[in-house]
Design a protein around this nucleic acid. Structure first.
Lengths: 214, 214
DNA sequence: TGAAAAAGTTGAGTCGTTGCACTTATTGAG
DNA sequence: CTCAATAAGTGCAACGACTCAACTTTTTCA
């Protein structure tokens, strides 16, 4: 548990900013942030999200509540890493897809990989607890979903460009929306890869009907 | 503005419970509820959702805050009607579709009708304000979306039955999910009917590929 | 060295929401 | 008709997330 929100990047993708802090000030700031996130994760896993108050976390990290909110936009944000290059990865999955692959196929692969990457860690019981907590706490479930769908517009633009359609093409917007929405289906059902297959089968066939060769 | 949340049923559909209250007690209860909803609507439209506190609403309706929360589960609930037969309507749209219509087609028609019914009232400036407020206030936007997608499981079951698929068929679940998710696309874009066309084109073609005659 | 900038603290306050103990009005059964 | 059960409503205190304003301390850099 050395990293800030070590688990969380497996939930949403791999989007951790690695910019090393240079001066002493920034290092201290980063450290405070880290302490808060660590304390929060530990307390949350211990007692459950709703059983921990921000006060408890601030106390455990030995800072004031006000300071906590200077570092994190809200209680839920304590659980998740920033998703800085999540959008870039999404866009790149479409633009730089291996030739011969359709856009929906590329998205299926990318999203499935992203959302099931954590299966590798299924052996770690702490991690299982973490994912269960996220899925079972409405506030966290919603927050994760918002983070994930935040880049819909960018994805829609990337798709439009890749398909040679106008930037605001409705079909591309629809594909982007639906593709991101598969996350819910994939996470809910027991066999993620099969769920992804079924969901994207719909999208692939529908897409192929109007966009012959992309 | 005689009805409780007169506008709101046009946002989510037509789901107003019409069971007349019989005894004096129930009539009084209904009236209190009505007063609260009226006061809330008026204040919200006047000052904006976030600029009105529950205290203000309770005061305007001349009841205590505690009473307000006995009638409504939360501040957002003051804005929306109950959605009792919204689910029934959704299921019926699939099951009782006119013969020869595909399931996605039936859904497209039903959802589009449901979500754009309010266009009739576009002339009423108060109504325009109302919809704008709902779309621009995150809490309300999310709440409306939650209300709308609440019946996804029921819809999935209805689709499965209509298609002769197993009750927990993944393709049917996916169609249900996507179909309900078109709401966002439809509401966001300026030409709702065209947005619905594009979004459902994807779904219809994808669906037809695996479900020949339904 | 000295002053701007930024991190942190403290304490009070807002707002939605709940719990508790209480009063009052309505109802239905004897 | 009466009385006890039921349910609406009240007032108040509290909690938890979050914000604000005024202030101290630390770090930076010219």
């Amino acid at each position: 548990m050395q990293r800030l929100n070590f688990f969380s990047r497996f939930i949403l993708g791999y989007g951790v900013r690695v910019t090393e802090p240079t001066g002493r000030r920034e290092r201290k700031k980063a450290q405070t942030r880290q302490s808060l996130a660590d304390a929060a994760l530990e307390l949350f896993l211990d007692r459950g999200y709703d059983q921990v108050g921000v006060k408890d976390i601030a106390d455990a990290a030995d800072v004031s509540v006000t300071t906590l909110f200077k570092h994190f936009s809200g209680k839920e944000a304590l659980v998740f890493d920033q998703d800085d290059d999540l959008e870039a990865a999404l866009v790149s999955a479409v633009r730089d897809r291996t030739p011969g692959t359709s856009i929906p196929q590329a998205l299926r692969e990318h999203i499935l990989l992203n959302q099931t990457r954590f299966a590798v860690h299924a052996t770690d019981p702490r991690f299982a607890d973490f994912t269960r907590m996220v899925q079972e706490t409405p506030a966290l479930r919603d927050y994760a979903h918002r983070m994930w769908t935040r880049h819909e517009a960018a994805l829609a633009r990337a798709i439009a460009e890749a398909a040679g359609a106008p930037e605001d093409d409705l079909g591309c917007a629809a594909l982007a929306h639906f593709a991101l929405e598969t996350r819910g289906l994939i996470l809910r059902h027991a066999e993620p890869s099969r769920a992804a297959d079924e969901a994207f089968a719909l999208l692939e066939h529908g897409w192929a009907a109007s966009h012959p060769a992309s």
